[in-house]
Amino acid sequence: MKVQPNLRRIKSKLWLFLWVLLGIVAVLPVISMVLEVVIRGLQGLSPVVLDQVSASSFGGNLIHAVAGTIVITLWTAAMSIPIALMVGVYLAEYPNYRFMYVLRGLVTTMADLPAVIGGLFAFSFITKHSGDGAIMFSSIALSFVLMPRLIRDTEQILRTVPSVIREGALSIGATKRQLIFYVLLPSCFRLLVRQWLHGLARVMGETAPLIFTSFNDQALTLPLSTFTFAKGATQGSLLEAWGRSFLLLIFVSILLLVSKQISRRVVR
């Protein structure tokens, strides 16, 4: 009678050990990844290497890629945030016509489409492959990726607003317009901003869609030039790639940290 429970207890602890072990093994690579990006990235950003870059044949200096990343991210934000906000409000605040169910399903499906599809979609609108337009078409591609995700987020955030608030506003005579613009949107503004920053951080690191819309500018943004240099696969070009990926990681983390800070101050 005494052996049985002990065996069971040992077996249980073994299971627990296995779960913890598997969990640790699964997330260990993050530490390695971040360390490697920081260490090699700092090497890759050293002045000596940077001097060689400007002479290298890829034609992409660092400033170009940084500027491209920032400009494209801003354009993407400008294109996708207003539309996502409007569709999100429409889905959350207006009565459920049958049309809405279809729209909701469509948005979810579009959010799950691979990002490359966005690139190819934007590419299909390009008529002449010369001159400017890389920024515009890249932003369109990224907006296609970002917009459905933001719509879903906006709708879910608006649904967390208690219905008491809506009823209160309507009962003192607010119109729907006033309800949306003066009550609902201000009350979850911080959460919305957090989601925007989050989405932009995700989209900033996208590489695949930009391959189709970069007009052969292989250093258009930081992720794209990281990819280009990594393909070079010589020791020097790999170092460049690490340098760029380090900068990219910094940009992404800044956006994410700001978004986290914003959500921390939400008082509910």
């Binding site: 690191g205 590489t207 992720p223 990819f227 990594a230």
Partner: peptide, 8 residues
């Protein structure tokens, strides 16, 4: 973490 960094 962006996917290029995974690749690298």
């Amino acid at each position: 973490i962006p996917s290029v960094i995974y690749g690298l």
